[in-house]
Design a protein around this nucleic acid. Structure first.
Length: 448
RNA sequence: GGAGGGGUGGCAGAGCGGUUGAAUGCAGCGGUCUUGAAAACCGCCGUGCCGCAAGGCACCGUGGGUUCGAAUCCCACCCCCUCCGCCA
């Protein structure tokens, strides 16, 4: 029984109901305040053209729908008369009514095609409009314009030649990339011995922190999902290049636990007092990383399969920015306990994703490579995902269901944490110190 | 993989060609009663779209078809459940 007070099991969820590609934006919101969305497009670095096209299509669509409805109304009214007329024996009148509805049928079909065409085009256009950034997000064009409001710890000054983690890994036999490449392919490493134990320790530590201090309910989800779920969180229609696909069964290997966990409540109406819902989940994540090469893929920096603990929150729309801060703190606390220097980055409008309204990246300092590595991305999606997934809540006052807000964040992505841990904690003799907080989980206090 | 059964409102569950957008029960909301609560009783109570409104249109897994008219008939597909087989 989940602690969130959600009925269990969820009745009749219809897990693979074919979902139309519903726009993540509400056309009515767009209609009411087009300028807001035009500004949002500019801020995120997109052309505002789709907004203008959407408004035009919407106007034409509404006209077409109105016309269509009028034809249908006439046909329905006539149709209703036929039964009684037949009973009264007024055959001629019944026949002429029948002929007229027959004629209307053709007209209706044409009007339907017109309306449907406009609707499809509108939906397609709406999909080009990103979620508007929150007002607190700095406006900017690239990563150079991101804000860095907080830094924890400071990069360690080594009095010896600090090694990158791939050298440390090799020295201590923690990860076997070569055999991973043989057995599966590049980017699918084996973790071995203390390397494997370190993974398990981190996963357990993260989950324990999330479930105790954070108050998250632990979930172990499927690691492949169907198409409707991939749509729900926005991986489809246009990010399929990033996912491994099991074509025979129409399933996708998850790129993050966000996908199955957020879809857990797809097509549901939750009681208001079930909110906020907080889930944490450990899963492997699979990413094709098509088109990314170069030196940042060395070692553990970028893999096709990696482990991650993910946090997901489903909250009342008025509470999502509070929730964003707690989510961020839940992730930051882990870095602090691990004593890893990190910085908090607020992504500017131009650097953030299509679907987010505000995103914090947490970047850990990697002493051997002397660079910052992104280990967590914490985002508010407001209603963008929830609208697609039709996750709503039923207000306590009995009024109509409303769309919830969803958020998620990594806490944390393991490989880069391991990289930073090894690099920052390496000693002159080549051994590696395990931070205090992790020792109960590893069962050893140093490697080598 | 084989054989059956089934998908209807927040949930359960009727309906199987024409005032059925859909009985009934539960849940929810409002009220009466009560010191308070429970119980009982009364009322309200699906969603989306078009419209200033009145009102209209659509939706009973999805898509198509038959019909003047379909939740109800036909076809295809998807999903769920049960049993058998296989299996960690």
């Amino acid at each position: 029984m989940p602690q969130c007070g959600i009925p269990w099991p969820v009745p009749n969820p219809g897990p693979d109901r074919p979902q139309p590609i519903v726009p993540m934006l509400d056309i009515q919101a767009l209609r009411q305040d087009p300028d807001r969305y035009r500004k949002a497009m500019r801020d995120k670095g997109y052309s505002e053209d789709p907004v203008l096209r959407a408004l035009d299509l919407d106007a034409r669509r509404r006209a077409a729908v109105t016309a269509l409805q009028e034809y249908k109304e006439r046909a329905n009214a006539l149709s209703r008369e036929i039964g009684p007329l037949m009973k009264e024996g007024r055959r001629d009148e019944a026949e002429s009514a029948r002929a007229e509805t027959g004629r209307l049928k053709g007209v209706i079909r044409e009007a339907e095609d017109a309306a449907r065409g406009l609707e499809t085009e509108l939906e397609r256009t709406m999909l080009e409009i990103p979620n508007a950034a929150h007002e607190s997000v700095p406006v900017g064009r690239s990563a150079a314009d991101n804000a860095i409001p907080f830094t924890f710890g400071s990069p360690r000054a080594f009095d010896f030649d600090a090694k990158p983690h791939w050298e440390l890994i090799e020295r201590h036999g923690l990860v076997d990339f070569e055999r991973g490449a043989k057995v599966t392919g590049a980017g699918f490493p084996f973790y071995v011995g203390k390397g494997a134990r370190l993974q398990r320790a981190l996963v357990n530590f993260f989950l324990d922190m999330a479930t105790t201090v954070g108050g998250y309910t632990e979930i172990e989800p499927p690691v492949v999902v169907n198409e409707a779920s991939a749509r729900g969180t926005g991986q489809l229609p246009d990010k399929e290049d990033q996912m491994y696909e099991v074509t025979r069964d129409g399933l996708y290997a998850i790129p993050t636990a966000e996908v199955p966990v957020t879809n857990f409540h797809r097509d549901e109406i939750l009681p208001e007092d079930a909110l906020p819902i907080r889930y944490c989940a450990y899963t492997p994540c699979f990413r094709r990383e098509a088109g990314s090469y170069g030196k940042d893929v060395r070692g553990l920096n970028r893999l096709h399969q990696f482990d991650k603990v993910e946090l997901v929150q489903i909250v009342h729309p008025s509470k999502s920015y509070e929730a964003l801060e707690t989510l961020r703190e839940d992730a930051e606390r882990l870095l602090q306990r691990l004593e890893l220097p990190y910085r908090r980055v607020v992504l500017c409008t131009g650097d953030m994703g299509f679907t987010q309204t505000k995103t914090y990246d947490l970047e850990v300092w990697s002493g051997g490579q002397e660079r910052w590595l992104e280990v967590s991305s914490v985002s508010n999606f407001e209603s963008f995902q929830a609208r697609r997934m039709m996750i709503r809540y039923k207000p306590k006052d009995g009024s109509k269901p409303e769309i919830v807000h969803t958020l998620n964040g990594s806490a944390l992505a393991l490989p880069r944490i391991v990289a930073a841990l090894l690099e920052n904690n390496q000693q002159a003799d080549g051994s590696i110190a395990i931070p205090e907080a992790l020792r109960p989980y590893t069962g050893f206090d140093r490697i080598g």
